[in-house]
Design a protein around this nucleic acid. Structure first.
Length: 818
RNA sequence: GCUCGGGUGGCGAAAUGGCAGACGCAGGGGACUUAAAAUCCCCAGGGGGAGACCCCAUCCGGGUUCGAGUCCCGGCCCGAGCACCA
């Protein structure tokens, strides 16, 4: 035995970090790569706490994939950057009474150190930060592209307001009625905001989700987006107002089949027709109700189990199917934002309408009968089933048909008679991008008394964020930027007259909605993204990130990409060909949180074990796409594995070591491992890839095999997980000069992945009673003879053998009668 | 309520419908050592049996099948997303 010097992670890792830096190992040639592979991971927000173990888990997983792809012959571009604008940074700065512009560079420096230390294959020449004017210049440019296309507009309306963060929140940032960031209950406020017309793209955003050629994504993410876009099919139906001249109320319903059961109508309190429909006698009650609804915050307005309230307008409308006059009410359970802001109420078959009708003693008519009732059975609750064997009743000529058939038939009838048409509705709302905050890119608009809202000319970008000393938000609803008089007053770009800058900054999600376009072009200061570079590298080949961004960041990125595509600036409309959501790491079975005090600080572990061991442990502790449980005790396993590999490398690297005969079973194990590890890496199943490597090492140790050819491939297969370690081993093996990541991934011989002998499980009446070992190609008769010769099996074969099931190379099953 | 995941030893987890528990952690026993650590070897789902072996076991209840952790039906529990969306 050869004495092996122990493996020292800190020395090895420092050595290779330096060498990669010196030799530009991680920097692909962006202009000449012939097999480019854009390997993207979600860039972090550079917090003061430093990299979280969750970040590291995600980045390591993405990095393993990138390193593997590189070894299979791709030029891999695996950039990293910093999502440093936003309320996170700003609130933290306020808390510690510092300026975000001072804090962010410190945090970025710390993150850079940690990211370098973890051994990510990052091309630092292309690093970016969203707070850098050379970046947000182009964020503003993106805004202008949307503005030019009529997709950015200003709207006065009710918005979600967080009284603690003192800012407007998008619907996406309101979680269960509370601010996503601080948990404070959200209120309603009326403000003028900038919006992006993402709703114009709802249909395409939804349709592409099913197009595997454009996007191969995690199912969970696709589902979340579908949910969010919320497509529903139904009909728009017009109800003429009785004695109302030409007035008509248009409603949207997903249940046109229940039209005969519509016994009243409900308008949102904000509906524009309300004033005209309200009769003199009802005016006072209606006005009071509307005032009350307006004061209510947007969120509690949408709490579903609240008691239904409403007021009669005094007017009636005509049900086009029955000709009956039905009362028109207003109620806050109808929302102005969805559909037409008005509904036909079918209390018999809608839970909310049923509750409302019960409260106000409005008529309830059954138009669908379930299997156990008929037209006259009273409804104790709304009957909402569509798919079961219900039949139409009280619906004239539609009686007896199913709701589904009737839905189509009534829609056809509505269209023929001019009462309405089949339509599709989406639940998606337009994206409010205005933030009355400081720490973001100013929205590039100038207001002029004579010209109105004027976009800042592109050659005057960026509109730099002024270095305000007091950047704290206040209650006014006006951005802190308005306090800088010199910045605020600016000549109008059109007429040269006095103008004022837009003082809102844009949503952080706009910064991150296009950053992947910027990475390959960070060295161009005169364009957001270079067409040539973009053509070579995009769309992104693989994107890995957290599913918490399933509907926000990922949907916005798709939208912005689609808009730029429509503007002729990109030749693809989906930015991420493949997206995989990684799982979450918990600690000792519990969610990590500061309050629990169980947050894993990666630095400590890397100090103790080295980055390679830590990476390997993270990839081994559970399936990458599901996450896993971090337990300190588990780290020693991967470390012991690396030590064993080190020993084998030491043996194989010895001057006396020679390539030689390899025992056949070891040869088979070797090729099986080569096949398995490649497949598992491709599928991001790192835990089982590592298990396969451990098995190989166990086999090699058992039979004292350290054949240099075998060990070289072992090191190559370990390289994606433990890059510094693998480089060092590679150098010691003297295989070739240069990085192991420029060596070719070991293929395998399919013929050698199959063993010569196989173990056949033998079952009798469904129970495994033994095994027989036979040559791989053994036929049924041979196996049967062997099985019957085995006493342990034979004793169960006493009765008449009625049937034998034979699966070649796998198992034999006897069915014995008795 | 709707839509997705998921439920397997002491723990993290593996298993194209074909020997359940690979791989690893923790544990027990042994070797080496004055001793400990490290390392190496052996054992290890539960129960029964002196033993060859036998029975039970993948959340629960049914079903399909020669054979089910895996497929189907019904239920329970956990996690995530959406939710007065007509």
């Amino acid at each position: 035995m050869i004495e092996s010097p122990t493996y020292s992670p800190s020395e090895v890792e420092a050595k290779w970090r330096a060498r990669w830096q010196e030799q530009g190992t991680n920097q692909p040639d962006l202009d000449r790569a012939e097999r480019p592979f854009y390997n993207l991971m979600m860039f972090p927000y550079p917090s003061a706490e430093g990299l979280h173990v969750g970040n590291l888990f995600a980045f390591t997983g993405a990095d393993c994939y990138g390193r593997y792809k590189r070894m299979t012959g791709y030029q891999v571009f695996e950039p990293i950057g910093f999502d440093a604008f936003g309320i996170h940074s700003e609130n933290y700065a306020i808390k510690v009474e510092k300026h975000p512009a001072d804090l962010i560079p410190q945090n970025i420096a710390n993150f850079t150190r940690q990211l370098t230390r973890m051994g990510g294959m990052f091309p630092w020449r292309n690093v970016l930060s969203t707070t850098d004017p050379s970046y947000y210049k182009w964020t503003q440019w993106v805004f202008l592209q949307l503005y030019k296309r009529g997709l950015a507009y200003k709207k006065h309306g009710a918005v979600n307001w967080c009284p603690s963060c003192k800012t407007v929140l998008s619907n996406e940032q309101v979680i269960a009625g509370a601010c996503e960031r601080c948990g404070t209950a959200v209120e309603q406020r009326a403000l003028e905001q900038w919006y992006f017309r993402i709703t114009d793209y709802a249909g395409r955003l939804l349709a592409n989700l099913d197009d595997r050629t454009k996007m191969d994504w995690s199912d969970t993410t696709v589902m979340a987006q579908k949910n969010w876009i919320g497509r529903s099919e139904g009909a728009e139906i017009t109800f003429r107002v009785a004695q109302g001249g030409t007035d008509a109320i248009s409603v949207y319903t997903t249940r046109p089949d229940t039209l005969f059961g519509a016994t009243f109508m409900v308008l949102a309190p904000e509906h524009p027709l309300v004033a005209r429909l309200t009769t003199a006698g009802q005016r006072a009650a209606v006005d009071a109700y509307r005032a009350q609804a307006a004061a209510q915050d947007l969120v509690s307005r949408k709490v579903g189990d609240k008691e239904k309230t409403g007021v009669f307008t005094g007017s009636f409308a005509v049900n086009p199917a029955t000709g009956t006059e039905i009362p028109v009410w207003i109620a806050d359970y109808v929302l102005m934002e969805y559909g037409t802001g008005a509904i036909m109420a079918v209390p018999g078959h809608d839970e909310r309408d049923f509750a409302f009708a019960t409260t106000y003693a409005l008529p309830i008519v059954r138009v669908v009968a379930g299997p156990n009732d008929d037209a006259t059975t009273l409804l104790a609750e709304a009957y909402t089933d569509v798919d079961t064997d219900g039949r139409m009743v009280n619906s004239a000529r539609f009686d007896g048909t199913t709701p589904l058939e009737t839905k189509a038939a009534i829609t056809r009838w509505l269209e023929a008679e001019g009462h309405g048409k089949g339509t599709v509705q989406y639940r998606l709302y337009d994206w409010c991008i205005s933030r009355q905050r400081y720490w973001g890119p100013p929205i590039p608009i100038i207001y002029c008394d004579s010209c109105g809202a004027v976009p800042v000319p592109e050659d005057q970008l960026p509109v730099e964020l002024p270095p305000l000393e007091n950047f704290r938000p206040d209650d006014s609803g006006i951005s802190p930027l308005a306090r800088d008089e010199e910045w605020y007053h600016v000549p109008c770009p059109e007429c040269g007259g006095p103008g004022r800058r837009e003082t809102d900054v844009s949503d952080t999600f706009l910064d991150s909605a296009w950053y992947f376009l910027r990475y390959p072009s960070t060295d161009f200061s005169d364009r957001a993204f270079d067409p040539e570079r973009t053509r070579r590298w995009l769309p992104v080949a693989s994107y890995i990130g957290g599913n918490e961004h399933a509907v926000l960041h990922l949907l916005y990125s798709r939208f912005i990409t689609m808009v730029l595509h429509d503007a002729g600036l990109l030749d693809f409309e989906e930015p991420f060909l493949k997206f995989r959501a990684h799982g979450l790491i918990v600690k000792d079975g519990a969610k990590m949180s500061k309050s629990r005090g169980n947050v894993v600080i990666p630095d400590q572990y890397i100090d103790q074990w080295g980055a390679d061991t830590f990476r390997m442990y993270l990839m081994f502790l559970g399936p990458f796409q599901e996450g896993g449980d971090f337990r300190d005790a588990g780290i020693s396993g991967p470390r012991r594995f690396l030590d064993k590999v080190w020993d084998l490398v030491t043996l194989a690297g010895h001057p006396d070591a020679r390539d030689g005969e390899i025992r056949h079973d070891v040869l088979v194990k070797w090729h099986q491992t080569r096949k398995k590890v490649a497949e598992e890496l491709e599928g991001l199943r790192y835990n089982t890839a590592i298990a396969a490597l451990m098995e190989l090492v166990n086999t090699l140790r058992e039979c004292n095999c350290a054949e240099p050819g075998v060990i070289r491939t072992l090191v190559q297969m370990t390289a994606p997980f433990a890059p510094h370690f693998a480089e060092e081993c590679w150098e010691r093996l003297g295989g070739s000069s240069g990085s192991i990541f420029d060596s070719a991934w070991p293929g395998y011989d399919p013929a050698l992945t199959i063993e010569d002998t196989v173990v056949i499980a033998v079952q009798v009446n469904g129970k495994t009673r033994g095994t027989v070992t036979v040559p791989r190609e053994a036929e049924e008769s041979v196996v049967r003879k062997a099985a019957e010769a085995d006493p342990a099996i034979a004793r169960h074969l006493a009765g008449e053998i009625r049937k034998v099931i034979w699966v070649k190379g796998r198992m034999m099953s006897f069915v014995v009668g008795g």
